[in-house]
Design a protein around this nucleic acid. Structure first.
Length: 369
DNA sequence: AACACATTGACCTCAAGTTG
DNA sequence: CAACTTGAGGTCAATGTGTT
């Protein structure tokens, strides 16, 4: 089997590398009076013997591990018994990556976790998982999700979203020499700088425009991020899998991220994530990093700016941004949306609430919860 | 009811970059 | 230069839906 062969070779290479190279043995004929040196060599030989024994133990342990790995499940099965804490931590990390923040800021690790963090989502996460960011499983989970999501959006569904020849996006050379992408990314030919709010983020590719009200309503409502009436796009790929946009009609979607993570509604982070993602997909950059190596685009900083802008506007009950969230939600989670936002259901609940509001009170009753 | 197929996220390995 | 980190790419088992 090629896979196991490769594993065993790499293991052998690794263990060789760990073993200290044997010191060149001196000639048997030692000058008299150098007993001290002889003793040292004897000690070295003993040390080498001990090393060899350790190496053998190491190999044996690896063989045991390899046997275990063959039997091990490759994929976590559904069901409470199979879901371990480690698995749940990785899942939380993946969900966090896409719905809250793609890269963990450096101060996450430096931050005193007993201090109240400013960010609300982080505060909630730390309440449930105080040591989340200290666990390597968490960063691994974030890494994996970044890599997978970026790859899917660019290489699997990119051509469908942007209605172009697949190679225009997948081939680095062509991607870097397509004028349409430069225009969508708001590249200034003179300064070689990219607009942090480029046309690709707006409805109809038309950019900021002159009318400020119209601009607020069109920002983050690009048809590349999601689209009403047709298949939802980038956002849907993230949560419902690539086939949700590349296939017509209903698809077999056994375990999509939204189901696994229990996501029923978009967050400001999710919209901001999709926004930097459509920019990266068209960019000259080959690797999805906080700062684009070739473009110089500050993906992470721009993401934070988008997310905080959206969060702030939502809190302030601004109409355009609530409309953006509404349309995106309707496109990405149509089923849940209709059941959640049925006016009839809302009225029914509101009526029941009113019954309590109108009911009589008694000062003797207390409730501390 | 049982099977086949299509699709998915998880897992694994490797290469390139970074640090000390 | 070794040890560590990060992201990409390939493979695989689990699973929902359609078909017999």
């Amino acid at each position: 089997m090629p896979a196991s062969h490769a594993t065993s070779t790499s293991r052998a290479t690794r263990s060789r590398a760990l073993t200290p190279r044997p010191a060149p043995l001196r000639s048997a004929r030692l000058p008299p009076g150098e007993l001290e040196e002889e003793e040292q060599e004897e000690a070295l030989r003993l040390q080498q013997a001990a090393n060899e024994e350790l190496e053998e133990q190491f190999e044996a342990a690896n063989r045991e591990l390899a046997k275990y790995k063959l039997k091990k499940r490759k994929r976590t099965a559904i069901g409470p018994s199979a879901v371990t804490d480690v698995y749940k931590l990785a899942l939380a990390a993946k969900k966090f990556t896409v719905t809250e923040e793609p890269w963990a800021s450096e101060d996450f690790f430096a931050k005193d976790i007993h201090q109240e963090p400013d960010d609300e989502s982080l505060r909630r996460l730390l309440m449930v998982l105080p040591d989340a960011f200290l666990d390597p499983k968490f960063t691994q989970g974030m890494q994996c999700q970044r890599s997978t999501t970026a790859h899917r959006i660019r290489y699997v569904v990119g051509a469908t979203i942007f209605k172009c020849d697949p190679t225009d996006i997948t081939q680095a050379k062509k991607r870097r020499s397509t004028p349409r992408w430069d225009q969508l990314l708001g590249l200034d030919p003179a300064s070689k700088a990219y607009d942090p709010l480029p046309p690709v983020l707006y409805t109809d590719d038309s950019g900021a425009g002159t009318n400020e009200d119209a601009e607020a309503a069109r920002l983050f409502r690009s048809s590349y991020i999601t689209r009403i009436g047709h298949h939802a796009r980038t956002l849907s790929c993230i949560f419902n899998g690539p086939s949700s946009i590349t296939r017509e009609g209903k698809v077999n979607t056994p375990r999509v991220c939204a189901k696994i993570w229990g996501v029923e509604e978009l967050t400001p982070g999710a919209i901001a994530f999709a926004a930097i993602m459509v920019r990266w997909v068209l960019s000259p950059d080959d690797i999805f990093e906080p700062i684009g190596r070739l473009s110089g685009i500050h993906y992470h900083n721009d993401f934070l700016a988008y997310r905080d802008m959206i969060t702030d506007a939502l809190r302030k009950k601004k109409k355009p941004i609530h409309h953006v969230l509404y349309t995106h939600n309707k496109a990405v989670f149509p089923d849940m949306f209709t059941s959640l936002r049925s006016k009839k259901a809302d009225d029914r609940l509101a009526a029941a609430r009113k019954l309590y509001d109108d009911a009589s009170e008694d000062e003797d009753y207390t409730y501390d919860g």
